[in-house]
Computed example of a mutant assay.
Amino acid sequence: MRNDAMIFDGLQCGHFDRAVFESLLKGTVRCVTVTLGFWENAVESMDSIARWREMARANADIVSIAQNAADIDRAVAEGKLALLLGFQNAMLFEGRIAFVELFADMGVRVVQLTYNNQNDLGGSCYEEHDSGLARYGKEVIREMNRTGILVDLSHVGNRTTLDAVKFSQKPVAISHANADSLYPHKRNKTDDVLKALKDNGGVIGCATYRNIAGDHYCASVDNWCDMVARTVEIAGIDHVGIGTDRSHNTTQKDLDWMRTGRWTRGIDYGAGSAARPGKAPPADWFRDVQNIGEITDGLRRKGFSAEEVAKITHGNWRRVYEASLA
């Protein structure tokens, strides 16, 4: 495999199984952050960790759970898929600062500060008013930095995101989002946020999720790579990666849980809308999981050098992992 052909995906979700793992490996993915939860409390989150450990043991010939960059390197050398355990909300900490270290000890390596709602750490992208990073949010970031958990800001409001980028002493991630200036959406990030990411040393993982990428950028891999190239113009070649937000084997029940959890009896469309209420179809070029491997050639066709392609496909993520998972 060429060095620039290997892919690290900053976030995927859904129900994984051996077939998914095999498809990712066929698509040259060698590291992926998997979503273990959205609205779950501490005990439910521990149940999810236990399930993932059991699944990793059952598929130990092709996957391994990684704790740091060295573990990822080892998995790559063995031809396996490295799994980083992540959560898309900080509810697993339940307001207890000591739980950050406990979950780090259990192997959690990526946590998003907020999901789709305001919480006690800060503001969400969907709140009418973004409160900014709370005092407790600062304490959690400080503890995540100390214990080797990467701070994820994907669904976080832009003001809270800027606060977190500036406060964190280690590189942060916007694991699965796009530039708002390229496709306007509340889930996407404004240019000032992406430029601040440079000073922090962090990475944005460009997403293929149709609701936040749009039909044009989903129409072909070349169109999507054009979005990546334009994101590089904003954030810099060292701060852009891949974070597809690909969902595996999800049902309407899963979608309802992601969008409404336990917090409402009403209807919430998440990143969708009344006009597009259901599950968004995958990008036209990304119908099969292994199609992710087409990104590499797409980036080459955009004129990126082999070194630049390698940075986007995996190198920038590895640098952040080495700095933040230690």
Score class of each variant (00 low, 15 high):
Ile204Phe: 01
Asp192Arg: 06
Val34Asn: 07
Ala283Glu: 00
Asp222Gln: 05
Gly37Leu: 08
Glu22Lys: 14
Val20Trp: 05
Lys302Gln: 15
Val34Met: 02
Arg109Leu: 07
Asn68Phe: 08
Cys13Tyr: 03
Val289Phe: 02
Gln118Asp: 14
Arg109Met: 12
Thr28Gly: 08
Gly272Glu: 08
Lys198Glu: 13
Pro184Trp: 12
Leu325Trp: 04
Glu44Val: 10
Asp180Glu: 09
Gly266Val: 08
Ala275Met: 12
Gln118Arg: 14
Ala164Lys: 03
Gly315Pro: 15
Ile97Leu: 14
Ala173Glu: 02
Gly86Glu: 05
Asp222Glu: 09
Val309Ala: 00
Asn89Gly: 12
Ala173Met: 15
Gln12Ser: 15
Val151Asn: 07
Thr190Trp: 00
Ser220Asp: 07
Gly123Asn: 00
Ser23Asn: 12
Ile292Val: 10
Trp257His: 14
Ala90Cys: 12
Ile97Thr: 00
Arg246Met: 14
Asp192Glu: 12
Gln252Val: 09
Pro282Arg: 10
Met55Val: 10
Arg276Phe: 09
Thr35Gln: 09
Ala75Arg: 07
Gln169Asp: 11
Leu153Ser: 09
Glu294Asp: 10
Tyr209Gly: 09
Ser131Trp: 10
Asp284Leu: 06
Val110Ala: 06
Leu24Gln: 09
Val228Gly: 02
Thr114Arg: 05
Asn211Asp: 15
Pro171Tyr: 07
Phe167Met: 02
His155Phe: 10
Ala326Pro: 04
Thr190Cys: 11
Leu121Thr: 04
Phe99Gln: 14
Gly278Glu: 13
Arg287Asp: 06
Ala104Ser: 09
Leu25Thr: 01
Thr147Gly: 12
Val320Arg: 10
Phe16Ser: 05
Arg230Asn: 09
Ile312Asp: 04
Asp61Asn: 11
Gln112Ile: 07
Thr251Asp: 09
Ser64His: 06
Ser23Tyr: 08
Val151His: 03
Ala177Val: 01
Ile295Lys: 04
Asn119Ile: 03
Asp288Val: 01
Gly298Glu: 01
Gly137Ser: 01
Arg51Tyr: 14
Lys253Pro: 02
Glu22His: 09
Val140Ala: 05
Asn223Gln: 13
Lys170Ser: 09
His185Trp: 14
Arg142Ile: 03
Pro282His: 14
Cys13Phe: 08
Arg319Cys: 01
His248Ile: 12
Asn188Tyr: 06
Val240Met: 03
Lys189Arg: 00
Ala56Phe: 02
Asp71Trp: 08
Gly27Pro: 01
Pro282Ile: 14
Glu94Cys: 04
